[in-house]
């Protein structure tokens, strides 16, 4: 279970460049649940995921995972329990190392990394087997440097790496945004399969209203560092992509109104 309580993060505080990226964000995720996060550009979605992953420490608030308060843990400590796939397909793997070597690194997640061989024959077999289950022909490319693979192939492997050992939480930050439509579909299909098979607790940021509506059991909508909507259950089931888009329009209208309203009030009362 993931519990985020009143998390605040401000970048460059006290300077003209101050950005209040998270303004007191709270939510809870049940084990095995799948939550989508949507929101406009710069609304703080990635910042929120990074706060959970420990990329930086939050200014205030708490992050708890599976009963532990992980607020003060470093990124790599949390990574022992959290799997991540990034937006950039190059971020999740080591380009000069082979496909098998990359997956072997993932197979040691949460374990000590000592002087045992990183790629045993057994592990190689397991890797080939899991790659075969992706049905992308990657099991024939075990010894290719991963940098020679396409973005979609790399993203599929990163997904496999993130979930090799069932993580307490899977974080996906627009992991299909940099892919061509066909690869994006393929990676989304894999995501769905893997998450369903292992019943993974998943938090996914997406720009695709389609994905948000069709995947998962809950939608959190972010705006200016806060959640503005939390849709689940039958509410989410009835939702169509158009509904989400109209909500965005509404937010945009309100944004444009607010300063104007302020001006008007000022004129009236000052």
């Amino acid at each position: 279970m993931l519990r985020v309580s009143e998390v605040v993060k401000t970048f460059y505080p006290g300077t003209p460049n101050e950005v209040r990226s998270l303004r007191g964000v709270s939510f809870t995720m049940e084990p095995g649940s799948f939550t989508n996060v949507i929101g406009t550009n710069g609304s703080g979605k990635s910042t929120m995921l990074n706060a959970v992953a420990g990329v930086f420490l939050v200014d205030s608030g708490r992050v708890e995972l599976a009963g532990d308060d992980i607020t003060g843990w470093t990124e790599h400590q949390r990574a022992r329990r959290i799997g991540r796939v990034f937006q950039n397909p190059f971020s999740g793997s080591a380009p000069t190392m082979t496909v098998a070597e990359n997956l072997a690194l993932a197979a040691r997640r949460g374990m000590s990394r000592g002087l045992g061989w990183s790629l045993s024959t057994t592990l190689r077999g397991q890797i080939a087997e899991r790659l075969r289950s992706l049905k992308m022909g990657l099991e024939d490319r075990l010894d290719n440097p991963i940098g020679n693979l396409s973005g979609g192939q790399r993203q599929a492997i990163t997904l496999l790496m993130a979930t090799w050992h069932k993580p307490d939480l899977l974080l996906l930050d627009e992991h299909t945004a940099a892919l061509d439509p066909r690869s994006a579909d393929q990676v989304i299909r894999l995501t769905h399969e893997i998450v369903a098979q292992d019943r993974l607790t998943t938090l996914m940021v997406t720009h695709s209203m389609q994905q948000a509506v069709h995947l998962g059991d809950r939608i959190l909508m972010m705006h200016k560092g806060e959640f503005v909507a939390d849709l689940s259950g039958s509410q989410k089931a009835r939702l169509r992509p158009e509904d989400l888009l109209s909500r965005f329009d509404e937010l945009r209208r309100r944004d444009q109104l607010t300063p104007a309203v302020g001006d008007m009030l000022e004129k009236l009362y000052v």
């Binding site: 990124e75 999740g92 080591a94 690194l105 997640r109 990394r113 002087l115």
Partner: peptide
Amino acid sequence: KTNLGAAMRAAGDNAQMIRALGA
């Protein structure tokens, strides 16, 4: 070629990735 050595190569290749794998 050991676990430690491979992790070192990965750290040089892509630090973000090895952090995300818990090292």
